[in-house]
Write a protein that binds this DNA or RNA. Structure first.
Length: 921
RNA sequence: GCUCGGAUGGUGGAACUGGUAGACACGCAGGACUUAAAAUCCUGUUCCCGUUAAGGGAGUGCGGGUUCGAUUCCCGCUCCGAGUACCA
């Protein structure tokens, strides 16, 4: 054996751990660079080969930045609160903390095997009380804050109270609940303390609100939207109903505009930015009152085209407008909608439906009586839950009007109303009273003024985004640092943090339907007051964790001012795009809040973000031959011959298949029933079929990185994961091909050794060809890493090593620099060779990246491709010192070119110096 | 439906600002070494025509266009993937 990867990799992993090679120091003598991975939830299944893709990429980047002279912070930790551990606890009684501990140990072992250069001295776990103390602390800050729209930032709640005491509610522009009261300062002083508290709660950024939740009576718990499939719980399939509950919420909507604006300042993938934009869903329009029915519209200019109003069936005014005569059909429709929304909301061809309430409301400008309808195309949760129906301008309104024979009033002379609505803004208004003859730009301010003068409407901006529910009726999460007194929430003292998660006998809801924390014996604040029984959602701990890495052990503050001012924000963040509207939005929200408080330095937490693609599974199949009755036999036919038989395809473990060839012995051992399996082979082999599917245990296509590392080593795994394709692209894992990456490392090793594996390099001065090869790779790797094109670097390394092998290069100067350039990708083998070259062990991680010198790449000649009519015909080597007219002369004088011309005179000759010659005939 | 990606040999992919399509690797075929196998090394490998060769033709999902020249730019489609879903 020549290249002993196992021994080498263990040796250097140990060396790095013992010497704390990758420990980042909070010093400012080098420029800082912060590279972050999305920290994992430590699941019981461990890592499969898809998980480390992003970690390897960020590790290469981190190592590269260190070589480039940056002080790199590259930490790792665990998002260790979460449902699977709780589910397991319910089933087994095992405390989630224990399961989590075991899983983390396994994750750590797997991560260590890959040779990732994390600074483990900063490790964090969201379920660690020393960590969640600060999650609770931030919650308290949010509770004690309100959003001042005049200053466009969060302010301490005391400033609001002071304002109430001196000026009452006048002059306050706040993001708050809709039912806030107006009062004078003296009225405020007459309020009872509870009354004042209740009013203040409406302004807090963390507040209690009655929200509808997915309640599953059978499981006794609230489910997230994605835990509900087709109206039943994903786990167990029990019915789920909508239930109103008092819930903690986060006033993220206060930050909607800043979250939107911030998107322009960050370097994120466009699809992700777009997703956040849509999620926030800003629309600029107006709210208009038809009597007491408030509608939201983005097209106030079409107001004279209104021929009906539509309320959502759940709208609170439905009852008021419903006439005695229409009572029965309206009720029937409401019932029908309820069922529909639960069962088949996704119905493809949506039929237009709705019912007239029998009531009318007055048009705010014409005073006309407008019929009020209900229909399920109007959603209770968006805007005001009511719309004005303008059939000529809106397609849905048009279909509704057609269906129920309501008038379609043209309102713009540019409208084409043959078969559908026309939302044009380009013409002049007609049938529109005082805006007749005006253009869109002219009409809107006129209308807004008219509406505002009557107090029946005003410009309004609406957001699709809702405030985020912040409570979970679960055990394994951060306790909310709140107790209740007279039915109102009060914060704990800061000195009482962390509020520890209490022990419970079971991880299930109580008999009375309270969350699991209700089971904690004697768990009361000061022995008297009830604590909040829900816990925080999964996103709480992950919405600020990058700051804790900056100062992971500080007991006085979540991160010191000095640490925050030095590390500022994450320079590069790598993770999956599935967090687009969850984690990445909430993190930006908390970051802005912490900025408002003056606790952090930057408005945006993640400067640059890269989404690594999903690694899919690649399943293998065997084909069991079926007998005449369609029953399975014990004979399996190879893929190429399967069409000659009746067969059924069965998943087979990809780990007993090599390059789609089945290992027959291992297959016979795979399951007892296959012990005597017979095979119909092709060319002496059993070829398996294959298909790309999700990587999962049930499909037998899970590949464990540990197995790859055992067979080929971590350096091979790292190279191969990168070699597989562009980082951002989704691709199936296919172990076929890993040999190529491994062979490359062995060739690289051989450059430093003679035929008997003795280390041998020469001290001669390098040849021009060797220097050219080296400087080509220096340039290429720099360019590739800066644009996150890791796959092309690996190819270039292969080319470089092939060239140096052909040149029989043994040159120390060349090989030493090549070691540095390759080290981010294959850190173990390069550390070994680096120390064999006589360098101080471990110093490779901080060696200076070789300086690219273009002079080694200068060519004197270039083989010009000569095309005729754009088709490449031949190469013609010419001196690069030749100018265009001389090149043309040389080319046309060439005998082979003349043969292609076949006596014809070229119409045109295009010459691009150093690139191409094209002859047009 | 809308938004955003994507489509290149048997496979993964390369071609960065329009300039030699298929780099690099896998697989496959043939050969060397070997009693044999594994490992290693060498040669070939987009497709079609041409017995080998010389040579010729086609070719980057499909149909058009711009250009001396298009995988790359523009217009119209097809298929695949992701997100979102009556957003007023």
């Amino acid at each position: 054996m020549d290249y002993q990867f196992s021994a080498i990799e263990k040796k250097w992993q140990q060396f790095w751990a013992v010497h704390q090679t990758f420990r980042a120091h909070d010093t400012a003598d080098k420029p800082k660079y912060y590279v972050l991975d999305m920290f994992p939830y430590p699941s019981g299944a461990g890592l499969h080969v898809g998980h480390p893709l992003g970690y390897i990429a960020s590790d290469i980047f981190s190592r590269y930045k260190r070589l480039k002279g940056f002080n790199v912070l590259h930490p790792m930790g665990y998002d260790s609160f979460g449902l699977p551990a709780e589910q397991y606890a319910i089933q087994t009684g095992q405390h989630p903390a224990i399961t989590t501990e075991v899983n983390i140990a396994r994750y750590r072992e797997q991560l260590d095997n890959i040779g990732l250069s994390f600074d483990w001295s900063r490790e964090i776990r969201t379920s660690d009380p020393a960590y969640y103390k600060w999650t609770q602390w931030i919650f308290m800050k949010l509770f004690n804050a309100w959003y001042d729209q005049d200053a466009d930032k969060a302010q301490p709640i005391d400033s609001l109270i002071a304002h109430f005491e001196h000026n009452g509610s006048t002059g306050i522009h706040a993001a708050a609940d809709e039912n806030i009261r107006t009062f004078t300062a003296s009225e405020w002083h007459t309020f009872k303390p509870e009354e004042q508290r209740r009013e203040i709660l409406k302004y807090r950024l963390a507040y209690l609100r009655e929200s509808t939740v997915n309640w599953c009576p059978a499981l006794g718990t609230v489910l997230a939207n994605d835990e509900v499939k087709d109206g039943v719980s994903e786990r167990g399939g029990y019915p789920v109903i909508q239930k109103k509950m008092m819930q903690w919420s986060m006033r993220i909507t206060a930050y909607a505009d800043r979250l939107l604006k911030g998107l322009e300042t960050i370097d994120w993938p466009e699809p992700l930015v777009e997703m956040q934009r849509n999620w926030i869903g800003k629309s600029v329009g107006a709210s208009v009152f038809f009597d007491d029915i408030e509608v939201f519209t983005t097209r106030v200019d079409t107001i004279f085209g209104v021929s009906f109003l539509v309320l959502a069936p759940e709208h609170e005014l439905v009852a008021k407008y419903t006439s005695a005569l229409q009572q029965a059909p309206v009720n029937a429709y409401i019932e029908q909608t309820k069922k529909k929304s639960e069962l088949d909301r996704m119905a493809e061809a949506k039929v237009v439906s709705g019912v007239f309430t029998g009531g009318y409301a007055n048009h705010p400008l014409t005073g006309e009586q407008i019929p009020v309808w209900i229909s399920d195309y109007v959603l209770a949760g968006y805007g005001t839950g009511a719309v004005m129906g303008v059939p000529s301008g809106d397609q849905r309104d048009y279909l509704f009007a057609k269906r129920f024979e309501l008038p379609i009033i043209p309102i713009n002379d540019a409208q084409q109303l043959t078969e559908q609505a026309d939302p044009t803004k380009s013409g002049q208004y007609i049938n529109s009273a005082f805006i007749n003859g005006l253009t869109y730009e002219e009409a809107v301010p006129v209308l807004l003024n008219a509406l505002e003068a009557k107090g029946l409407g005003k410009a309004r901006i609406n957001y699709r985004m809702r405030d985020a529910i912040f409570g979970r009726q679960r055990y394994w999460g951060e306790p909310v640092p709140v107790y209740f007194k007279d039915g109102l929430p009060h914060l704990l003292d800061e000195k009482d943090l962390p509020l520890l998660l209490p022990e419970v006998d079971k991880y299930l809801p109580t008999e009375s339907g309270e969350p699991p924390l209700g089971r904690a014996e004697g768990w009361k604040y000061q022995g008297t007051y009830d604590y909040e029984l829900s816990t925080m959602p999964g996103w709480a701990g992950s919405s600020w964790y990058w700051y804790r890495y900056m100062d992971a052990h500080n007991e006085n503050v979540f991160a010191s001012k000095e640490a925050v001012d030095y590390w500022k924000a994450v320079d590069l963040y790598i993770g999956g795009s599935e967090h687009a509207t969850g984690h990445l939005l909430y993190s930006r929200f908390w970051n802005k809040f912490l900025k408002d408080l003056g606790c952090v330095a930057e408005e945006e937490p993640f400067k640059k973000l890269i989404n690594q693609g999903m690694i899919q599974g690649r399943s293998n199949f065997v084909y069991r031959v079926l007998d005449e009755e369609g029953k399975g036999t014990n004979t399996f036919v190879s893929y190429g011959l399967k069409d000659q038989y009746k067969t059924s395809a069965l998943h087979v473990d990809v780990n007993i298949v090599t390059n789609d060839t089945l290992n027959l012995d291992k297959f016979r051992q795979f399951r007892p029933e296959y012990e005597n399996a017979e095979f119909i082979l092709e060319n002496g082999r059993y070829i398996c079929g294959h298909e790309v599917e999700k990587m999962s245990k049930s499909k037998f296509n899970v590949v464990n990185p540990d197995d790859i590392i055992e067979n080929y080593g971590a350096d091979t795994l790292r190279l191969y994961e990168m070699f597989l394709g562009p980082l951002e692209q989704s691709k199936p894992w296919n172990t076929n091909g890993i040999e190529g990456a491994h062979k490359f490392l062995r060739k690289f090793w051989k450059l430093f050794h003679d035929a008997d594996n003795n280390f041998r390099v020469s001290d001669d001065s390098p040849s021009p060809a060797e220097l050219k090869s080296l400087h080509k790779i220096i340039k290429k790797v720099e360019e590739d890493i800066e644009r996150f094109s890791f796959n092309t670097s690996v190819s270039s390394f292969m080319i470089c090593v092939n060239e140096l092998t052909d040149l029989k290069c043994k040159n120390r100067v060349i090989l030493q620099d090549l070691c540095i350039v390759l080290s981010p990708y294959a850190p173990h083998i390069t550390e070994e060779l680096w120390s064999l070259l006589g360098n101080k062990p471990g110093s490779l991680s901080y060696a200076p990246f070789p300086q690219f010198n273009p002079k080694y790449l200068i060519e004197s000649e270039f083989a010009y491709p000569v095309s005729v009519n754009g088709k490449m015909k031949m190469n013609l080597p010419l001196s690069l010192s030749l100018e265009v007219p001389d090149i043309e002369k040389e080319v046309l004088a060439n005998a082979d070119v003349q043969r292609f011309l076949d006596g014809q005179t070229p119409k045109k000759v295009v010459v691009v110096k150093g690139r191409i010659v094209n002859i047009v005939i």
